[in-house]
């Protein structure tokens, strides 16, 4: 079947089986292999993309359901020489090792910071009626849907903390 997808601001005409997940559409049909398949069941977060501003698992989404939705993948966030602040911070803080979960981590973190800005609480927020604080624990909980077997978690938290300006992150690190 035919679906018109909007990805990173560009329009793509996808001709694919209705079974095709958004992730497989990106990787196998559209040549956008930045989004990774780690589990194909929403259990690792490697496939995270941003749909209408919200992070989702592209493996658990049918491509044919996504017409009219603005999709942003890792390729749309930045490129070598013009990295996004989070991408740049991941490089400097070594917020990855093998790099396979990294696009998902960065897409998730990008949208996650918007969730905090919008005042969304998390399960580690003490007072649900207040605006959540920016803290390492908040970032860590909110990034727990993205597995990293190399275990760059402390560096991922540092990278995001720096970009988010958690507790004057830079001063604390000096």
């Amino acid at each position: 079947m035919k679906t018109t997808l909007t990805i990173n601001g560009a329009s793509y005409e996808l001709e694919a089986d209705s079974r095709t997940s958004l992730l497989d559409a990106l990787r196998n049909h559209l040549g956008l292999t930045g989004s990774k398949k780690g589990c194909d069941h929403g259990q690792c977060g490697s496939c995270t993309v941003i749909a209408d501003g919200r992070r989702i698992n592209s493996c658990l989404t049918l491509a044919c359901m996504m017409d009219g939705v603005e999709i942003t993948t890792i390729e749309g966030l930045g490129e070598p020489g013009a990295l996004s602040p989070l991408q740049d911070a991941f490089v400097r803080h070594d917020g990855y090792q093998c790099g396979y979960c990294t696009p998902g981590q960065i897409c998730a973190a990008t949208a996650m910071l918007d969730e905090i800005k919008a005042g969304w609480p998390s399960v580690v927020t003490d007072d649900l009626t207040a605006s959540p604080e920016l803290s390492e624990a908040e970032i860590s909980e909110r990034m727990s849907g993205n597995l990293c077997r190399c275990a760059a978690y402390p560096n991922i938290v540092d990278a995001i903390s720096e970009v988010a300006g958690v507790n004057g992150w830079k001063e604390a690190a000096e």
Partner: peptide, 18 residues
């Protein structure tokens, strides 16, 4: 910093099936 870092964080480092 890892020299291949910018490729990894931008989704442009090609893995086995890519």
């Amino acid at each position: 910093d890892r020299p291949e870092g910018p490729l990894k964080v931008s989704g442009r480092a090609p893995y086995a099936h890519e």
